[in-house]
């Protein structure tokens, strides 16, 4: 058993803890940042399972696009509601 296959259950446990934290986060920006963490570590998990093309797609969409779109949407909502100090 090589050490990479030995690492996979720990990485799955880490992803699970982060995903549960996303559900119970107090502020929405914390949830967005931890979502980026989950997406990044899922990319490593795909790569350890020997699927580098899926890992490439997950890294490009999850790391760059999802965080950017979420942050722009939160900023638009805050500007529309007019309450700026709550974050």
């Amino acid at each position: 058993m090589n050490p990479c296959e030995f690492c996979i259950p720990f990485i799955i446990l880490l992803t699970w803890i982060a995903a549960v934290y996303v559900i119970f986060a107090k502020k929405i920006m914390h949830a967005v940042i931890v979502t980026g963490f989950v997406s990044l570590i899922a990319s490593v998990l795909f790569l350890l399972m020997k699927a580098p093309d899926v890992a490439l797609t997950e890294a490009s969409i999850g790391a760059g696009l999802t965080i950017a779109i979420f942050v722009f949407a939160i900023r638009k909502i805050e500007q529309k509601e007019g309450k700026d100090g709550k974050r």
């Binding site: 920006m29 940042i33 980026g36 990044l40 990319s43 790569l47 580098p52 890992a55 490439l56 890294a59 490009s60 790391a63 760059g64 965080i67 950017a68 942050v71 722009f72 939160i74 900023r75």
Partner: peptide
């Protein structure tokens, strides 16, 4: 091919970090 994954990963994580900083 794992090096390509690392390259794309590094570039796009930088973009996400910049967006959060601008926020």
């Amino acid at each position: 091919i794992y090096l390509d994954v690392a390259l794309v990963y590094a570039i796009l994580a930088f973009v996400g970090s910049i967006v959060i900083a601008r926020y």
